[in-house]
Each structure stands twice: as structure tokens, then as C-alpha cells.
Write a protein that binds this DNA or RNA. Structure first.
Lengths: 219, 219
DNA sequence: TCTCATTTGTTGCAATTGCAACATTATTTT
DNA sequence: AAAATAATGTTGCAATTGCAACAAATGAGA
């Protein structure tokens, strides 16, 4: 059972999905699925697999808007998916429950206990998304690559409490996430290494500084 | 009646607020109110006035995280307000209803109609916030000042359908929003003017290009 | 209306960054 | 295991940007 249905027993889950006219889709790995859902305000609940939402510029470069893992949700109300620039790609064989957002938010299910529970679950997903986006904004508003990296490290440190950071994605994706040129980021990481602030082994980065360090003065 | 209580009559509104142990605060203009709410997960509903949420760096510069207008909501779940770097400043005499987020999300009010309605209203606020944050991220991920400006203009254009953009804030604040140096932005605006793509009169910017224009090639 | 404070415009300069191109190392596929 | 593909490291160079400093314009308050 996914978190989206927490507090709703299986029987009511089925009732709920019928009520919301939900559809279950099964996609193969590396499918572009946006075309199948484009024209509606929808919520997708990923019950198996995971997806990447990307946006491509006219010059061809592509940016990851977000990755949505198993058990998580996505939708037109979370990312604007309506332009042709967007793609939703399954990175594994993926199952998705699609729900019409407008139907969900309509007022027709007033006395339905599990409906309210579901809304509340959605609410919690959405507040989590907001926090993720806030983090990204805090990083993106930093004016130098160095400070973007340090802000990213800070956030990871606060989350895990550990000075060992395991990148959840490649360095290419990190550059993308920070919205900087990959090679320029690579250069800056090298600087930080040479100045003794960090160590890097594969995707594991070790922070060798603390709050009192001189590196914090600029931030 | 604020949108937060849409679909809830006044009597039930009062019941709801009592149930949620809501407090109403009255602040004078230019008060720093964060200290009064810091330690809880809270939602604030602004019934009168408006506020600015800012974050200051160690070097003293301050960034506007968001402006929250009358009728809108804010809270620890929307912006992380827990660090000392944040400030919430009232820009007018302001009334705020404070609600404990954890209490709101608890499961004790199962059969309460207006409670569910309220959650749903909050849900819609929050999805709107997400979309605002998505917009900002799309802007911030642009790699040049020019492209940030153009992306900003695009978004404003899409919202209003008009080529006349009235800046809702000062150019200083715009630089802040785009996370670029003000003078560098000013320089770039001048370039765009001289190349004939825009006109500027005070806070009114006119777009002199369209989708087919060469200016779009890079974007 | 005058004064003071804030915002906006401008410019030179140094530092940072993006870009392109290529070498090297990992990873995946056959 | 070999070959193909993808990711990472590196560097020079030109373009962009941030920073600082100051002038001009605008707006707010006395």
C-alpha cells in the first residue's frame, strides 16, 4: 500500500478510485508518457517504478525538473507540464494511477470519510514538495558556483546530520540541479578539494569543515 | 470572509478556529513577528495587511523569500522559517490567524464537515504556491541574466496575455527575485532596450517581440 | 516646497563562468 | 571479455557577471 492511501483500507481504496474515475496505466521502461495524459489536470501516483520529468530548451539541452520515485506523486498542479517542452520518461517499468485533479477537488463527496483522508494525504505530499522546491530555490539564489555547492552540502548535512554525502545522482545531474555548467562545477569542486574543504571518492563527498570554518564567511 | 474559509459559514468558522486552537494576532506596521511564532509548525492566514518574508546572508544582504498578501497564507511548511536568518516583517498593520499545523493534520476531527472543507481550501492554496515556486525555478535555472529576464517576461505575458508588463515591485526587488546583481541587470535591460526588444517607462515594460523573433533562438 | 533617503542608471575592472574540445575513466551492452 | 556508450576530468579562451563607486532621478516626509 502506498502512502497516498495511508489510513484507507483496501476495500475503500477501491471504492475511492472508482469514485475518482481513476485509471491505472502500465508503462515499459523509457516510455514517454506525457502524451497519454496531457490535456487534463491530473495527479499521478506511482505505485511501481519511477519517472523523470524534463524540460528541453530550443537549443536542445535538457533539464531535469524533478524525479518522482515509487510511492510518490506528481501532477499538473505540481509542475506545469502543459508546454511541448516537457517530457515524462519512465526510467523503469512503471505503474501509475491517474486521477483527475478537478474531479478530486470538486465538492461531490462530502460525507465520504476515505475521500477526506485521501485529500489529507495529498496535502502532506504537496507540503513536502514545497519544501523540496524551497531548498532548490535557496541553492539557485546563491550567486557563485562555490556558494551553490556549499548551500547544497549544507542542506544535505542538515538532512542527514552526516558529513558524508552520497550524491543521489550523477555529477552531470548535480550541475543540472544547480543550474551551472558541468565543467565549471567540476573545476570548482577541484578548487574545494585542493583547499582542503572537501574530499571526493566517486559519489561520496566528505565535508572537512564546520560552522566555524573560514569558508562560511562568504555564505 | 477570506478564501481560506470558503464554503464554511461564520458559525462553523468560529467552531473550527476554536477546535484548531487558533490565535488571532494584531501587529503594527513594520513589526518583526517571527519571534512570536518561531517554535511551532504553523500556518498563518492573513486577514488584513501583508507581510514580507526575508532571509539575510552573513554578509548582511537580504533576500525576499516571499510576499504574502491579504487573504493569503504562509507557514513553516511553505517556507522553512526556523533559522535565525529569516525575518517576517509586516508592511502594514496586519492581522494574522495562527494555526498549529500538526494539530490541523492530526486525525481527531474525522466527522467534521467544515474541517474537511478547510483542509481542501488549504490544499488549493498550497498548489498555487507550488506553481509560483515552479515559475521562479524556471527563471533561476536560466544561465544568463538576459534569459532570466526573458523567461520572467514570458511568464508575465502568459499570465496576463498582455505585452505590457507592470512590475509588481522595484527593479531592486526584481534583481533579487532573479538572483542577479542589480547593476548587471540594469545593464542587460539597457541592452535589450537598445536592441529594440523592449521599452521601459518607470515600472511599465513593453515587449516589442513575439514568438517568431530571433530573440527566442537562445531560449 | 525643500530636504533627505531611496531607487535607478552608468561605468571600469577583476573574477567567475560558460563553452568547446578533448583525454580519461566508468558503466553498460553484446 | 571486448566494444560501445556514458560520465567525469581538464584546459584555454571569450563572454558574462559581480562588485564598487558614483551620478542622476525619484519619492517620502517635514
Amino acid at each position: 500500500m502506498t502512502k497516498a492511501f495511508e489510513g484507507i483500507n483496501e476495500k475503500n481504496q477501491k471504492k475511492l478510485l472508482r469514485m475518482l474515475e481513476a485509471n491505472v496505466y502500465h508503462y515499459k521502461k523509457n516510455s514517454n508518457i506525457l502524451s497519454t495524459i496531457k490535456n487534463v489536470n491530473m495527479i499521478g501516483i506511482i505505485t511501481k517504478g519511477y519517472i523523470q520529468i524534463t524540460r528541453s530548451n530550443d537549443n536542445g539541452s535538457r533539464t531535469i525538473i524533478e524525479e518522482v520515485e515509487e510511492e510518490e506523486i506528481f501532477g499538473t498542479f505540481i509542475s506545469s507540464l502543459k508546454s511541448k517542452d516537457y517530457e515524462i520518461i519512465t526510467k523503469e517499468d512503471t505503474d501509475i494511477i491517474m486521477i483527475d485533479y478537478d474531479l478530486l477537488i470538486q465538492n461531490n463527496f462530502r460525507n465520504c470519510e476515505y475521500y477526506h483522508q485521501f485529500i489529507k494525504n495529498m496535502f502532506e505530499f504537496v507540503t513536502k514538495k514545497i519544501q523540496e522546491k524551497n531548498e532548490r530555490i535557496e541553492i539557485l539564489t546563491q550567486k557563485s558556483i562555490r556558494n551553490k555547492l556549499l548551500e547544497y552540502f549544507n542542506i544535505m548535512f542538515k538532512k542527514t546530520g552526516s558529513k558524508y554525502i552520497y550524491l543521489p545522482f550523477t555529477f552531470m545531474d548535480l550541475a543540472d540541479y544547480l543550474a551551472v555548467d558541468r565543467s565549471a562545477m567540476s573545476r570548482e569542486l577541484k578548487n574545494l578539494k585542493e583547499e582542503g574543504f572537501i574530499e571526493i571518492k566517486g559519489k561520496k563527498i566528505t565535508l572537512c569543515y564546520d560552522k566555524n570554518s573560514s569558508i562560511y564567511m562568504g555564505l
